[in-house]
């Protein structure tokens, strides 16, 4: 420990009495907890992400939600509109990213949640993944991961190329959203494989599954047991959730009802669990052929 009160680096064991050693953890050094939300297209990732963001904000955390989908519809329930995307803003300065400032593409939404939409590729270049990669770089350069407590990446359903996996280079925990049906569990298996591959070189680990839009969770649970996943939350197929999307707001702004309370409670406990630190899971995804045989036939 040096003699002018500067806390030292991670990994240093405490050096005994008399020192004002600060035991560092990511949050104290000012690095946010970063989560990446994946799942088959249309499964409810954006719903999950935006309600989760709202839940974290209710816990008193500063939140940044980043939509990584050319459809740029991740954050509209928080901002009540489709905000300009990063790619739109870049086009307005002829792609000179150095001219941009955070306020150009980062908007404040419900309860102080900050929202960014990466957007899609400009016509003719066709690489959405590249846009996601560039967006993440921009956010880093503008220190947006440092001045916040929670970052949530809402990533499009089919991870077709390296660019869409960029959030995994920065996330600590990945969540997979699935329904209790063949298609989304099949997709979940492939996504899990991609995440485990990234886990070899990066710190990302799978936190678990969010069962969405499902009355039952038996297939999800069976699959989870078989591969080593854990179910973290269960959102039944509630009409009120569908209506909240149409009303362009999160569940936390809807008039209360037993169903709204149930859903809110699920998101709050998920947020709390993630903040406390979901234990990293070692997941062994199945081969396509195996999962094909595994699911359903009961």
């Amino acid at each position: 420990m040096n003699n002018f009160g500067i806390p030292v680096t991670l990994g240093q064991p405490p050096d005994g009495e008399g020192s004002v050693q600060v035991l560092e953890d990511e949050a104290i050094v000012g690095r946010a907890k970063v989560f990446a939300v994946y799942g088959k297209g249309g499964i409810g990732k954006s719903t999950t992400s935006s309600n989760l963001s709202a839940a974290f904000s209710k816990l008193g955390k500063r939140v940044l939600q980043i939509g990584c989908d050319p459809k740029h519809d991740s954050t509209f329930t928080l901002t009540k509109c489709l905000v300009p995307t990063v790619i739109d803003i870049l086009e307005s300065v002829q792609f000179h990213a150095e001219e941009l400032r955070p306020e150009d593409y980062c908007y404040e939404g419900y309860n102080g949640v900050m929202c960014v939409e990466a957007g899609g590729p400009p016509a003719g270049t066709g690489c959405g993944g590249y846009v996601v990669g560039q967006t993440v770089k921009l956010l880093k350069q503008h220190h947006l991961f440092e001045d916040t407590d929670v970052v949530i990446f809402d990533v499009l359903g089919d991870v077709v190329c390296g660019g869409f996996a960029t959030p995994l280079q920065h996330a600590e925990r990945a969540l997979i959203v699935a329904a209790n049906d063949f298609d989304s569990i099949f997709a979940m298996n492939r996504i899990a494989a991609a995440i485990m591959a990234k886990a070899k070189n990066y710190k990302v680990r799978i936190a678990g599954v969010v069962a969405n839009r499902s009355v039952e969770t038996d297939q999800i649970d069976r699959f989870a047991d078989a591969v080593g996943l854990k179910r973290l939350a269960h959102l039944p197929d509630l009409d009120v959730i569908r209506r909240s999307r149409l009303k362009k707001c999160t569940l936390f702004e809807m008039d209360t009802s037993p169903e709204v309370e149930l859903a809110r409670a699920q998101y709050m406990q998920l947020a709390a669990a993630l903040w406390a630190g979901a234990e990293p899971l070692t997941v062994a995804p199945m081969r396509d052929r195996d999962i094909f045989d595994f699911l359903g036939f009961d």
Binding site: N2, I6, P7, G11
Partner: peptide, 14 residues
Amino acid sequence: AESMGLPIPVVPLE
């Protein structure tokens, strides 16, 4: 460099 446990602050630059 951060993981080397030096007794001084190490500031990584990206």
